[in-house]
Simulated scan of single mutants.
Amino acid sequence: MAETMARREMRLGKPVTAAAETIRSPDTIGAGIAIRDVVKKYGAFVAADRISLDIEPGEFITLLGPSGSGKTTLLNLLAGFQTIDGGQILVDGAPIQNVPTHRRGFGMVFQSYALFPNMTVAQNVGFPMRMARMDRATTDRRVAETLEMMRLSEHAAKLPAQMSGGQQQRVAIARAIVMRPRVVLMDEPLSALDRRLRESIQIEIRDLHQTIGSTILFVTHDQSEALTMSDRIAVMDAGHIVQVARPAEIYRRPQSRFVAGFVGESNLIDTQVVGRNGRMVTLRTPGGHIFEAESRNGVQGDKATVLVRPERIALHDGPVPCSLPATVTSALFLGELLRIEVVLDDGQTLLIRCPDIAARDLPPVGTRLHISWGAGESWVLS
């Protein structure tokens, strides 16, 4: 009974006593979230159009999509910053749409850091605990633990202005998790950072999630960020969730042309269907090249769009079985990768990415070569 009350108090954002805090174990931290037919309108514009999504306790799920797709709207509805116009949001089975933001007990990390400039790092991190009226000893201990976890202990006495952007973002994350909330919401928290720092903090956030066990809902428009960090990705477009799956599934087996084109670089080839054998489909390009590709549920009709990722295409100096000729139109050296564009004899352009190896020279524009890919390297879009 005591554990049930403590968990309910954390969910609703009520003050938690040290005694209640001690009975919470890591496997009970993350909350399950159920989003049911949620609608949000701004006049005639529908920002969230009957969105439904189940998030498992302790899951790291990313809302990924272009600007205007509805991902931040959905996060704001979950946080309580906006009111829903239809549907329901439940946390551990309890509806929260009528619970004020400060009573939901969620941790929040914003793109802008939102630190108090006149407070030290330790004071910023401890602020939620002081607002929750936690006792001084518990607050000091938890702040110290969290600063250590985020590698900020030596900066405890500094003001935000004395720190780099990456350090300030780590302070913002520390403040969001110091209460060990059951849900942490992150709204594009890394978009203001440079690439190297962003990649470093991605790893830190992923490791942090595995340590504290909170359910994390992360919003981004950066595909690599979503693929690197998530247990699952919900791809959004025009107020809808168009696919929810693990990162490898989203990348290798997208369900639509939109997902294939938005997540990663893609070669989308329009083909004619010439045969079917279970999940394998035989296809012909406009230039007459015949190849096989895998399909989730078979193909309806006599036409299909096939996805071949740039890194799945092999280069050959001359013809090999199942290859086709192509002409180099662009070749760039990217360090660890070569980025090569070719045009097929039927006029279709394909992008190829291959690792840089000592024996391979960057092919000059106009070079004739052959390319190929295997049946398992291509995917028929539904």
Results as ranks from 00 to 15, higher is better:
residue 327 T to I: 11
residue 192 A to Q: 04
residue 226 A to N: 03
residue 271 T to W: 09
residue 102 H to K: 08
residue 172 A to E: 06
residue 169 Q to W: 01
residue 4 T to M: 03
residue 288 G to S: 02
residue 56 E to M: 12
residue 41 K to H: 14
residue 76 N to K: 10
residue 201 I to P: 14
residue 346 D to G: 08
residue 306 V to P: 09
residue 345 D to F: 03
residue 375 A to K: 09
residue 81 F to I: 11
residue 154 E to F: 04
residue 139 T to S: 10
residue 159 L to H: 14
residue 180 R to S: 09
residue 193 L to T: 10
residue 227 L to Y: 03
residue 217 L to R: 00
residue 15 P to Y: 12
residue 369 L to W: 07
residue 127 F to E: 12
residue 214 S to W: 02
residue 353 R to V: 13
residue 229 M to Y: 11
residue 51 I to D: 11
residue 206 R to T: 14
residue 332 L to C: 11
residue 36 R to G: 05
residue 289 H to P: 13
residue 252 R to L: 12
residue 184 V to F: 11
residue 296 R to E: 15
residue 242 V to R: 02
residue 13 G to C: 10
residue 305 T to S: 12
residue 234 A to R: 02
residue 55 I to Y: 10
residue 285 T to E: 07
residue 263 V to P: 05
residue 252 R to W: 02
residue 49 D to V: 05
residue 6 A to G: 09
residue 299 V to A: 05
residue 363 P to S: 11
residue 214 S to F: 06
residue 226 A to T: 04
residue 278 G to L: 04
residue 224 S to M: 01
residue 90 L to T: 07
residue 365 V to R: 07
residue 79 A to D: 06
residue 197 L to K: 01
residue 195 R to E: 13
residue 270 D to Y: 10
residue 267 N to Y: 11
residue 7 R to Y: 10
residue 349 T to F: 01
residue 283 L to N: 10
residue 171 V to W: 03
residue 182 R to W: 00
residue 106 F to D: 10
residue 156 A to L: 01
residue 219 V to C: 12
residue 96 I to G: 13
residue 42 Y to T: 13
residue 308 V to Y: 09
residue 374 G to N: 06
residue 111 Q to S: 09
residue 226 A to C: 05
residue 186 M to T: 05
residue 36 R to F: 03
residue 264 G to M: 03
residue 80 G to F: 12
residue 312 R to P: 07
